[in-house]
Amino acid sequence: MVDVEKLKEIARETVSRDDVKYLIGWRQGSFGFRAAPHFVNKPEDTDKLIFSPLCSHNLATFLTLAEKLPVPRGQEPDSRKIALMVKGCDSRAVVLQLAEKGISREGIYVIGCPCRGVVDQKKVEAKYPEMGESVTAEWGKETIIFDLPSGREEVPREEILAGKCITCRYPNPLIADAGAWEEVAVWGTDDYADVKEVEAGNPQERWDFWEDKFASCIRCYSCRNVCPMCYCEDCVLDRLNPEWVMRSVNTTENTAFHLARAFHLAGRCIECGECERVCPVDIPLMKLNRKLTKEVREKFEYEPGVDPEAKPLPASYRPDDKEDFIL
């Protein structure tokens, strides 16, 4: 469990350090059951920090999203660290970003936040449709407690947890420089039931399922942009010459986009579920990502972002890798 006051204290110490540029945490959102990323530059800004079941955002995204502007002549680049708070799932992104050399270990300072699961916005908004002013939430024992305008309400955790949290096997951060909290017990098991459900269909049924979903995509690229593992500076989807994926928004091009996105995450998706959370048209992207995760686990006994010593999958050839699925 995380003591939020302790967390703020650590945050204050962290941002006061000379070698830290800023700290990224969460704050309460502007309405309803929302939290928001919070960038802390000064010790007094830490007052707004929260850590609650509303903190879905994987802040590791902001490590690779940070814009590097050209350094003016005569000036040294700012090499101070970026400090960030991570839940268990978020920490897997940091571990893999490091393994892939997308970020450097000296450039970050990680504050670990053992997590008891975050809420699914859609589930909680369906439960309390009269959403209005900002509602805070906290963890109870096996429950989530909301401070609604009508009073406190305690909801069984499994009723409103995000899908990724129901199957979560890594609630505790796998990498951290600070964080003095009690670890939480692992509650989830993952049998890939959601993937198996789609796999059970015949090819036509599966095609129909995805065609319907992809047809509704509006190509806002929020799934790509929010993904902590999608950090190519020059994305294949932005290319105009050759235009690998046409800008036309139709089922064919949308499908090409989603398959490209999923393939580029094969063996790299750390299952933070952010893509699915942010999708404005509710495409079940995690089913697609997890299909590939399942394949990778079965074929290579590999799970991304769980072992800080491990190489990324595409860089970890072993002579005894299975070949029985190669045509």
């Binding site: 990323p37 960038f39 509006i218 790509r224 942009n225 942010v278």
Partner: peptide, 28 residues
């Protein structure tokens, strides 16, 4: 800058906006 810090640079706010009208022209 404070607003942009957490912005993902995705197209949700503009694509779902009823008044946003910017377009691009492409030959396909």
């Amino acid at each position: 800058q404070e607003t942009a810090n957490s912005c993902l640079g995705c197209g949700i706010c503009t694509f779902l906006c009823p008044t946003c009208h910017c377009f691009d022209i492409q030959d396909e």
